[in-house]
Each structure stands twice: as C-alpha cells, then as structure tokens.
Design a binder for these strands. Sequence first.
DNA 1: TCGAATGTCTAGCAGTGCTAGACTCGCCTT
DNA 2: AAGGCGAGTCTAGCACTGCTAGACATTCGA
Lengths: 191, 191
Amino acid sequence: MSTQERKERERASRHRLIVSAARELAETEGWDAVTTRRLADRIEYSQPVLYSHFRKKDEIVGAVALEGFAELTEAVRRAVPTGPASRAAAAALANAYVAFAERNPTIYDAMFSLSAGLPFADPATPAPLREAFEALLDTLGDVAGPVEPGLFVEVFWAALHGLVTLTRAGRLPPEHNAQRLDVLVDRLVDR
Amino acid sequence: MSTQERKERERASRHRLIVSAARELAETEGWDAVTTRRLADRIEYSQPVLYSHFRKKDEIVGAVALEGFAELTEAVRRAVPTGPASRAAAAALANAYVAFAERNPTIYDAMFSLSAGLPFADPATPAPLREAFEALLDTLGDVAGPVEPGLFVEVFWAALHGLVTLTRAGRLPPEHNAQRLDVLVDRLVDR
DNA sequence: TCGAATGTCTAGCAGTGCTAGACTCGCCTT
DNA sequence: AAGGCGAGTCTAGCACTGCTAGACATTCGA
C-alpha cells in the first residue's frame, strides 16, 4: 500500500507543479505564452502528461482561477475589520477588491475572461467561488438596506467587476479610479 | 478618373462584405467559427484579400464591434424619450442597454471581450464609441446629482457592463435580472 | 525471473493566423 | 491596335496551436 500512496503523493505534487508553472508563465509572459508545449517544457515532462492531469488546457487555467478566488477571498477578509459592517467597511472591501484586480491582472483574467474551463459543476459552483461570494456577503449584507442581501451583493459585485474590466480594457481613464469607486460605494450603500 | 473611382467603390463594397460576413458567421456559429479561411470562403475570395483590407484578423472583429457601438447608441436613444431626463429615463436606458446585450451577445463580445483590434487611435477613441458614451451622458448626466456627470456616467456604465458580463458568464442567476437592474438604478440615481 | 500493467514519450493530425512569390488580367501608352 | 507594365489575386507554405494514437520503457507483483 505504501508505494501506491507515495505515487499518489507524487502525482498530487506534480498536479500542483503544473498549476503553479502555468500561473508563473502567465504572470510573466501573459496567457498567450501558456501553450501546452511551453508548459510541458517548464515542468520537464511531455505534453501528454498534462492531459493525464487535466482533460483540456482550459481546465489548467480554471485551476489557476480557483487559486485566484481563494486569494481574493483572503484579501477581502483581511481588508475589512470584523464586527458590525458599515459604510466604511463596504468602502474598504471595494478598495480591496479593485486593488486585488490591479495587483493580479493575469489571475483576474483567468477568473473571469478565460473562464471556459472553470468547473461549474452541479453542486452549485466550486467551493472557492462560493466562499468568495460569502466573504462579500458577510460585510455587504449589512448595508443592503431593504433589498434582499444576496441580490444586493450581486449588484455590488457586478458594479465592481464592471469598473475593473472597463478600466483594464482602457475604456475608462485610470486616473479617476478612486473617485469612481467613491461614487459607487456612496450611492450603493443604503443611507 | 472614372475607372479608379469605380475600383474604389468596389473595394469599399467588398470591405463591407467582409465585415458583414464576419458578423453573420459569428452570430450563427460563434466567433470561434470565424477563421480567415472560412471567412475567405464566404466572400468567395482567398485569404490574402482579407489582409489587403485589414492588417490583422482582430481588426475585422473591431469593425464588427464598431457597428455594435453604433447600434447600441441607436437603441439607447430610441428607448429614452427626449426631454428632461429623470429616474424613469435612466431606468429605460438601463433596460435598453441590457436588452441590447442580451439580444446581441455575439456583437457585445466583439465590443468588449475581443476588443484587441479596436482602433483605439490617438484622437481619443473612435467616433462610434464616443457617440455611444454621449448617448449615455445625455440622459444620465441629469440624474448625476452633485458628482461630475462624466464620472457618474462612467460608473453607471461600468455597473451595467458588469451586470451584463457576469450574467452572460453564468455567474449570476438570470432569473433575478430585472430586480438587480431595479436596485442598481434606484441606488445610483440621485435622490 | 518473467509477464503484465503502469507510466511516459515521440511523432503526428487537423487546424490556426499570416505571408512570400508566382501568376493573370486589365489598363495605359505608343 | 499591339504591347508591356502594374495592380490584383491566388497557391502554397511557414510556424505555430491543442490534442492524441501508438511505440517504448520501467516498475511492480507473482
């Protein structure tokens, strides 16, 4: 039995290696550089090995995206103080969200633009995605006012996401980003 | 001189043919089906002809995107009654925007997701893009309240765009779309 | 020690965007 | 009206993509 366990450990470790290599390659040279050949090169295995871990290349991107959701959750949780949520907490969350996207543009792309391979399976959505949403819900739910908290969080999240993507696409001048965020929070939060 | 004019006319007509063929192909089979080979086939010319009109394939997508911006402008203008803008006008605009995106998902993708080849040249942005923004400004500027109208429109637009993209990506359950839009307009519009 | 099964690699397929160079045709000049 | 030149087009091909069948080791259990 021991040898089988060892093999599984090694396999899991190679799995992680693939994901982190893909991420690093994407972060340094962009997603276009993440081809199956170059990725196989990096991990010092041949292409078919990738396909023994993932069914399609998209699934590798999806795995990186899941990492991103976990990190986004952490960043958001760290930014807002625990305790009763307020307008200030919502503002801190919004800032943290946008900052994360600006700090990790490549991962953010994987999370939203290249999401074709994200395991969107039956038991709702994958855990990290759900947890990210819950992190938002925990602080934004309290400032939802009369509307259903879940719905409010969806709207708030969508607005943040729109701001991020339009800015990143060069459609919004980046210099007034902070002001835009201010307006958004000011208006959305129940007064 | 006449023959040269005729040639230019024919050339311009073929230019339009390429763009409309690309759009039709994309709308019926998705952007993945729009390859230079299949597109060349459709217009009954060879691939190099495409490249005598556009430098890269992205530019063809960009041309379709520009059409989309023009149509979006029209849809928005048609939806809001002329005259003093109000909360109702803003709601009508928001509905028209989202409806356009739902009615033309393929073109919307060209406008925002596949925007690599959009002529983003020096004199600010291309005309149709500017005009679309102005259409939003005309009705939303009046409900901006104390904040600078341009900035407000950017925020409003980003929020709409975020709602559209997250819904389309399957991240938001589509059934509560109308409610989300209601909340968004309710909160953003100055009261 | 041998047979089988697990694992990995080489080589290749069908497709992509894009282009160099051959060719043909229509136009202008003599 | 005949000829040559240039513009316009096409064929063929390059370098690359994601993905996979089949050959080859290598390791394991009997």
